[in-house]
Nucleic acid binder design. Sequence first.
RNA 1: GUGGGUGUAGUUCAAUGGUAGAGCACCGGACUGUGGCUCCGGGCGUUAUGGGUUCGAGUCCCAUUACCCACCCCA
Length: 422
Amino acid sequence: MARYTAVKGMNDIVPPESYRWMRMEEDLRLIASRLNYEEIRTPIVESLELFQRGLGETSDVVQKEMYVFEDKNGKRLALRPEGTAGVVRAFIEHNLGIERPGPHKFFYIGPNFRYERPQKGRYRQFHQVGFEIFGDPTPEMDAELIYAAMLILDHFKVKGEIRVNSIGCPVCRPAYRERLIAYFRPKIGELCGDCRRRIDINPLRLLDCKADAPRERWSDIPLITESLCPECAADFERLRKALDIFHVPYVLDSFIVRGLDYYVKTAFEITAETGGTQNAVAGGGRYDGLVAATGGAAVPATGFAAGLERLLSVIPADFYAPQPLATGFALFDGGVADLLHFTKHLSHHPVRFMAEYTPRKFKNALQKANKRGARHLFIFGEDEVKNQQVLYKDLVTGDQRLFGQHEIMAIVMMLMEKEVSP
RNA sequence: GUGGGUGUAGUUCAAUGGUAGAGCACCGGACUGUGGCUCCGGGCGUUAUGGGUUCGAGUCCCAUUACCCACCCCA
């Protein structure tokens, strides 16, 4: 019989890697909570229309990357390809903007799905953490958001580059769009096939085409930052001042664009050495029009998402050291009951412990403990059981001592002390 | 959707076209309650699948498939 395998592009997360995931997610939730972002959990399935509206009909995600299906009623549904649309829907549906005063800060963590060809750092099921702020129009809030992204990077000891841009608004972007088309039209013969197609659909995307590498080839490409309307230009200035106050190290990059239609003004991206070409670890910006476009009030919004696979790939390998393992063995049948009691008592304390109830010879217990990578060994042999004691051995230092079987607190204290200063 | 690379034991890898192997891991045993050993024993694996060439294919050719990498796109 053929063995079952995971679906292409969808990966199991198994030990020991799953431990790093658990810890990373714990830390992300903690950081979010401290900055007063509240968690919001939305379904993985939404109506197809929500994404079509929100992300824009011309985006690649909507056009060819979504998992779309019908339920038994014929309703068109989709696996979420990103997190923002669902959060916006929930924000509107539950009147979260009305019952409490803004600004409203939310975060989410979870899987997203896109039907793309997998490669390093890109999977069909991938995971994101996202931060979203509703009800605040200020570029200062954008700056605070970028600062939060920076805090996350710093926390995980990740060296990333923060690149910032303004991509204008419905007032000034159309004019820039025309300038760009006018600039590239005469050069159309020099462009790659994709860009020839894109020039009328989404000319902004020509800017980050890797095949054409426009920024190296032409030095006089019109820049969005030179075409901003007075309001966008002023906001961009305020953004930069606020970032300076936060001491966020950033570089201006006029070639940053966003793949999804809902973004305006502030746009930013964080790249890091992920080992592949997929080096964008996080990205986001302002999306003032999305809430209204989704059927809510005219609520300004800003946010970003970070890819967890990519984030984890740049977190130093030794960032999370597993808690030292303690292990217990009985040396004869009469020790098993005591070992069971010991397991039960230790389970109430924050120590990582596992027992094995097949009696072993002392030597074999040592070998087994070593192979398992345990630091601490507890032995229930004939002498110990007779005296209601347990033998403890530190497998690293070789030290050993006897404890009374009921001295659980003393044992726990010792284990925790060793954890702090080995 | 388009390219390129790679598929041999759980794993890492061998095997000039001529009998499919090793290390590690794993399981069992020996070694009287003190170490990461040592020794002994344990693997017929449709060499990814299906065709073809050949006296003979893990090896060469074709197709399929899976994985990886890249394009594309993005987190």
